[in-house]
């Protein structure tokens, strides 16, 4: 399942996509993220029959991703994103670059 956390508002699209088929809930993104955007849960709230841990973005964080992720996204000289880099399964992607 591709879980798109985030939102779209008048200023643009702000989504973090987690591929839950790839995610094994290792939690390295949790440690890497300076904005504590991610959390590992034992039960996927969006998939009642899944029995393995998975990473999610909590709702209150999801509503302000543009701001939470801001410090990792300077307008110029953009480094690789810590969460994306940290994921050994290549399960995390961001929708916006601006």
């Amino acid at each position: 399942m591709i879980a798109n956390y985030g939102y779209k508002d008048g200023s643009g699209d702000y989504f973090i996509a987690v591929d839950t088929d790839k995610c094994d809930g290792c939690g390295r993104c949790v440690e890497a993220c300076p904005g504590t955007v991610f959390e590992v849960v034992d039960e996927d709230p969006n998939d009642p029959f899944r029995e393995d841990p998975v990473v999610i973005v909590a709702r209150d964080k999801g509503r302000k991703l543009k701001y939470e992720c801001g410090p990792c996204k300077p307008p110029t000289n953009r480094p690789a994103l810590p969460c994306v880099e940290a994921c050994p399964q290549d399960a995390i992607s961001h929708s916006w670059d601006r």
Binding site: K64, Y67, G70, P71, P75
Partner: peptide
């Protein structure tokens, strides 16, 4: 203010 500050933090 927190929204404006996060925008300022993007440029340093």
């Amino acid at each position: 203010a927190s929204r404006i500050v996060s925008m300022i933090r993007r440029i340093g």
